[in-house]
Nucleic acid binder design. Structure first.
Lengths: 144, 144
DNA sequence: CTATATTAAGACTAAAATATCTGAATATTA
DNA sequence: TAATATTCAGATATTTTAGTCTTAATATAG
């Protein structure tokens, strides 16, 4: 199986994007997220805790508690989330895994991959999640 | 960690590309491959057996035995190898993992990812491994 | 025919990723 | 203050991927 981001990272992207649809102040419980996004409860909990530790989210315990964005949505890009969960190694690594591949010693697809990878980067940074949330035809969240 | 192809698949790409540098008839031992490519012996062995079963490689036992391409290099693309090892799901799946993401119900980066993914596809099919081997500045194989 | 160098196959182990469980801490509300 | 709903933290379990080991089969060369 090939996939560009880990499952954890996919879940993180989905969850943060969902939170971006909400007003900053009100907190969303794991329960709601897990229901709407169809992500295993405890697994999501750990991911959200991780994002909270890293400042992307904020959390509050108790009834009316939950998770919300840790900073204004206009300051968060998808790249921030990928960076926090998966790291940015994919920006440097050879797509065929050649350890010595580099500009000076390129593999057969070095240049092409470099372009594509830059395209991925652009995709991740060119819009903040506020813009995304605004004109997003909701990606089929599960009904409540 | 994010990486587009599995490690197994990376190894497969490296190995087949290495074999494409050789004349069709002569067989290359796992020992040579493992040394030049710095891939664990037994792990590589299994990958090569897999590729052989799928017809991309041929094999011969005994002294002077080893592995070689199973068809002319001009008929093999990187895509064939990826297809054989990792499969092609990455061509269809949403980059953020939204199960319901589609053209009609696109996620925030659906179109952009579709373009990039097509670029990856093009990268994998636009050249056969004979062409690649021909004008390849060898990607730093380990010395013998 | 025998010794040897190879691949084939399958069982096994190790590590990483994914997922679950449990109990504690904490905030809210009645 | 008591009951409740939540996150927090860490242990555990499961699954997948990566890697290893061992024995058998087979081809070659002497």
């Amino acid at each position: 199986m090939s996939l560009i981001f880990s499952r954890q990272c996919e879940y993180a992207l989905q969850a943060v994007l969902y939170l971006a649809l909400k007003p900053l102040d009100d907190m969303t419980s794991i329960k709601e997220l897990t229901k709407r996004l169809d992500i295993p409860y405890h697994f999501l909990a750990k991911i959200l805790q991780d994002l909270t530790r890293k400042g992307l989210l904020s959390s509050l315990k108790g009834p009316t508690g939950g998770f919300g964005l840790g900073m204004p949505a206009k300051d968060i890009t998808l790249f921030h989330i990928v960076e926090a969960i998966d790291g940015v190694e994919f920006m440097h690594n050879c797509v065929m895994g050649f350890p010595e591949c580099s500009g000076k010693n390129p593999c057969a697809v070095h240049e092409k991959w470099a372009n594509l990878r830059d395209g991925v980067y652009t995709m991740l940074v060119s819009k903040n999640i506020a813009e995304m949330a605004k004109n997003m035809r909701k990606p089929e969240y599960q009904s409540v």
